[in-house]
Amino acid sequence: MASETVNMPERRRKLPSMSVLGPVIALLVLVAIGAMMNPNFLGAGNITNVLARSAFIGIIAVGMTFVITAGGLDLSVGSMAAFIAGLMILVMNAALPVLGVGVPIILLGMATALIAGLLAGLLNGFLITTLGIEAFIVTLGTMGIYRSLVTWLADGGTLSLDFGLRTFYRPVYFDGILGVSWPIIVFALVVIIGEVVMSRARFGRHCAATGSSEHVAHYSNVNVNRTRLATYAMLGVLVGVATIMYVPRLGSASASTGVLWELEAIAAVIIGGTVLKGGFGRVWGTVIGVLILSLIDNILNLTDLVSPYLNGAIQGVIIILAVILQREAKAKG
């Protein structure tokens, strides 16, 4: 790591800004509060539970970090997840008589989810970049489309995975390696790869440049449209990955699957210090944002200090605080 040391003394001289420290401190405070309130809080069971539940939003939020950093936005991910889940269940149920219960059918379901996610992301990206429609409008539209499609596929009710299949698929959510469940492992992998790509790879630099100034990026030989398109495609694939983890948990999909996931993912990204208007993003911050949001929920459920019904209010306050911290950091920098 000789390359790191060259600049270290200069960077370390001053304390990191509040936009860096803020989310970390908030997370530590939440952990301390949780530990004081309930002795079970730091138990392996609860920690695993919190992390596994965070994984779906977390995997999506990593993708969202890239989209937002490149100056975009995607409101459709929650509906997209529901639609992919529904599609996956339909495909697996339909293939059951041919393939039977076994690994091939699970792989088929996974491939369906990944391909559907990729195509859905490419569609969003195509409309936004090639046709030049605003990201907010495009993804507001596709959000409605996917939500409506899953409701239609389920005929207003619930799409359920065949019982035998569900039993076979369940371990993908509940089992793991050395007591760490699969969603947590996948989440961790996505985060590590995401962080490296964002901070060390050319693609991450191009995302930040595109979000920072489209014109400068264009004049600097960055293919702005292709960079944006790639962020949406990548987010779509990650929605597919999250869905693969999600389906075995309940074994069903309905109109209420993944509701408000898009806003939770965006909130996690913003709390983590990524700038909503683009130009700067950090994946590790997003992870902290996701953990903060799930810990608030978890603590309110474990303790009776504050009604769990106020969960949304507390999350709202945190989001606004995060943005205020960001603004102060910018004013100083």
């Binding site: 440049a209 920072s212 100034s213 400068v216 130009g279």
Partner: peptide
């Protein structure tokens, strides 16, 4: 300012 440099970024980037 508009097309040449990313004003929010450092010199290295």
């Amino acid at each position: 300012k508009l097309r040449g440099l990313l004003l929010d970024k450092g010199m290295r980037e």
